[in-house]
């Protein structure tokens, strides 16, 4: 187990450019440990770029990323072993069984044999999917696939769970279920980093407010509890107000470059 105060993600002065285009500019934040933090930004804000940097699909020479006490640039493997990632695009092998998909991932993280079997069993148990372990992933619906990816991302017991627009393409009910599920994980003490452009995925009630990092045009505009950020407004109105500047014409292309490259 990591020491207290270490199960978090810290980013300092991170910048990134695609050639002439500045995708991220001096991004700094530290996640509240054991808490749900939403990375909220409109399309093209730089969320995907940030995710690519956090997962070391890209490398920037400006700024630092620290995951659970490990510097991503200096000890990438130690740092990567501490994050669980759910990418926006599905990363399951559709024609392989649920079990095979889980085993493949476990092995990539050095978990094998009985240990792997036990962890996978537990994960599937939690999802109520134990009897479907032999089924092809193709036969699962979108919501189940996503839940499976989340369970898979937790097999190696990471310190931080990161999800990049994990509800894309899901119907309302499945989306709600996934959002609640991940909030439950945070309530149980997991540090969660949730990228989204959908305000309704963020809890804004004073009692159990999520943290929000507002990212716009590659910059962090705010980082505080959603309840504080919205004040007396709704979060949606507040977010609109904050990001209602003319977005640069190339914002779309920057985001899609990040997509195409990773």
């Amino acid at each position: 187990m990591s020491r207290t105060g270490m199960n978090t993600l810290e980013v300092s002065d991170l910048s990134y450019r695609y050639g002439e285009k500045q995708a991220l500019k001096d991004v700094s934040f530290r996640l509240h440990e054991g808490h749900f933090t939403a990375l909220l930004g409109p399309n093209g804000a730089g969320k995907s770029t940030l995710f690519a940097l956090l997962t070391r699909l890209f490398v920037s020479d400006q700024g630092r990323i620290n995951i659970a006490g490990h510097d991503l640039a200096r000890s990438p493997r130690a740092a990567l072993s501490k994050i669980g990632v759910v990418f926006q695009q599905p990363t399951l092998d559709l024609d392989m069984s649920v079990m095979m998909n889980m085993r493949y991932f476990a092995a990539l993280h050095g978990i094998k044999g009985r240990d792997a079997a036990r962890r996978i069993d537990q994960a599937l148990e939690r999802l109520d999917m134990r009897e479907r372990a032999g089924e092809r992933v193709r036969s699962l619906n979108g919501g189940h696939r996503r839940r499976m990816e989340i369970a898979r991302a937790l097999l190696h017991e990471p310190a931080v769970l990161m999800l990049d627009e994990a509800t894309v393409g899901l119907d309302f009910k499945s989306r709600r279920a996934i959002v609640d599920h991940v909030h439950d994980l945070a309530d149980a003490g997991l540090t969660v980093f949730w990228a989204t452009h959908l305000v309704d995925e963020i809890r804004t009630e004073d009692a159990d407010s999520d943290d929000v990092i507002v990212l716009h045009q590659g910059r962090v505009l705010a980082h505080e509890p959603a309840a504080d950020l919205r004040g007396t407004q709704s979060l949606a109105d507040r977010f609109m107000e904050m990001t209602d500047t003319e977005s640069p014409a190339d914002a779309e292309t920057i985001e899609s470059s990040a997509e195409a490259l990773t």
Partner: peptide, 14 residues
């Protein structure tokens, strides 16, 4: 294109 490359490349190995 499908994303499984990301899964591979984010594994904690060189």
């Amino acid at each position: 294109e499908m994303g499984s490359m990301r899964l591979l490349l984010t594994a904690p190995l060189p």
